[in-house]
Design a protein around this nucleic acid. Structure first.
Lengths: 120, 120
DNA sequence: TCTTTTACTTTCCTAAAGGTAACCCATAAT
DNA sequence: ATTATGGGTTACCTTTAGGAAAGTAAAAGA
């Protein structure tokens, strides 16, 4: 009985460790979170994203492909007068909302803290 | 009045963008989150961390220094019979708790989702 | 005195991340 | 016909991240 619960706890944190590892890998790099955050306000076209983020087209393409493969964004070709390609977060991506929110609020606070530290 | 509110909203998201940028930079790489998570269960010595994470000593040293400089962990030299160096999360690091939790739960779920997708 | 242990440091190397610049193709405007 | 725009791709380069292996220094144990 005691042994069983130990195993359960162990299995649990192993799963959690794997989850963390995968999440870290998925969001690794300079851009993934920033792109998700930017698209959270509404879909954008390739060019708009590129200009808003100041990211090179090569890197942007790669990041968008990876996010798409992980079901976090969708790419839709819209045949307007001029063809345009729109990127939008998926419903599934809303599950990253709290990651983004907690990261942002930590980051905002941390900036102040570090600045204060430098002054002191 | 309308202009004022617009400016406020703008300033707000600029701050948020800076926060996100800083947070991303701080936690960038393979190890920061994993180390914080591992130390969250209690302090560990250098060797223990190294073996638990399977990380090279060089990289571990670097990551620990960076976390220390950002006030997220403390390094204490304990003069036991044999000298030992202990690393522990700070009180401040508890503010990263929700980042870790949301990352982990997303990651755990995402693993299942992606596996399901591969099967389908 | 010799060996172990801990906590690193140093050197060397590979691979991933990211940037710049130039180019390509389709459509649209002039 | 020419130019501009959008959505990329390609080639090239630098920087950063990370790992392997060996070495170092201080203390403890045999």
């Amino acid at each position: 009985m005691l042994q069983l619960r130990c195993d359960d706890i162990n299995a649990d944190w192993k799963e959690r460790a794997l989850g963390l590892r995968d999440a870290v890998e998925l969001f690794r790099g300079k851009w993934k979170f920033v792109i998700l955050k930017t698209l959270a306000h509404g879909p954008l076209r390739f060019k708009d994203l590129q200009e808003k983020l100041n990211i090179s087209p090569k890197v942007l393409t790669r990041e968008l492909r990876e996010l798409e493969q992980n079901l976090l964004i969708v790419r839709t070709i819209r045949k307007m007068k001029q063809i345009s390609v729109e990127y939008a977060v998926t419903e599934y991506a809303r599950e990253t909302k709290w990651i983004l929110e907690t990261l942002i609020s930590f980051g905002e606070n941390h900036r102040k803290k570090i600045k204060a530290q430098v002054k002191a």
